[in-house]
């Protein structure tokens, strides 16, 4: 190994350094290459993980607009729960219900008069796009009429959305931001 000492290194060189002399440009390159390798690994990790974990977040309208193109791809979708449609088979734990389109944009929600009014409007308006949901699992306590359901899953060939994760946001009187309750 080539040994090159910088001036300053020699002046306070210790015994240990004399015994294991590695320093200066070679040492620097070593660290540079090490750093680049780590950066590359990090970049790869982030990109591959984002590719695996990213989900498009659609409204019911947006999903319907994509039609068959959207079938079979993992997406997130949000909508207002229609209370009358909730059916739960406790033996098979199969939960079915229908959601109605509601805007995702907070601006539009506020134009509707806030989240509660927006959800109520979505439930009352029969002309909106609707989507049938099937979910197998525990029926969340918060699932009720005019709650906002946020679902992760995929659209089936038959136009039914098969959810594997179900989160509910209820317009509560409480101001705290809490992690979602059901999944």
């Amino acid at each position: 190994m080539v040994i090159i000492f910088a001036e300053s290194d020699i002046s306070h060189m210790s015994k240990a350094k004399l015994l294991h002399p590695t320093t200066s440009s070679i040492g620097r390159n070593k660290f540079l290459i090490g750093g680049l390798v780590i950066l590359a690994a990090l970049l790869y990790l982030i990109i591959s993980a984002a590719a695996a974990g990213a989900q498009f977040f659609y409204t019911v309208d947006e999903l319907k607009a994509r039609g068959s193109e959207a079938v079979g791809k993992p997406v997130r979708i949000a909508g207002a729960v229609l209370g009358d449609t909730i059916q739960y088979d406790a033996d098979t734990l199969t939960l079915t219900f229908t959601i109605a389109h509601m805007p995702a944009d907070t601006q539009l929600i506020n134009d509707d008069g806030g989240l509660v009014a927006a959800l109520d409007a979505a439930v009352a308006d029969g002309s909106r796009n609707r989507l049938d949901i099937v979910y197998v699992g525990v029926k969340p306590d918060l699932l009720k009429n005019a709650a906002e359901a946020i679902l992760t899953g995929e659209l089936g060939e038959n136009g039914v959305f098969y959810a594997n994760e179900l989160l509910l946001r209820c317009p509560t009187r409480y101001e705290e931001a809490l992690p979602g309750q059901a999944r």
């Binding site: 993980a49 695996a52 974990g53 977040f57 995702a104």
Partner: peptide
């Protein structure tokens, strides 16, 4: 277009 990342993203990326 809103795209979210879930636990899968965090787990695969931070696990190693």
């Amino acid at each position: 277009q809103k795209v979210t990342v879930g636990p899968v993203y965090y787990e695969t990326a931070t696990g190693p």
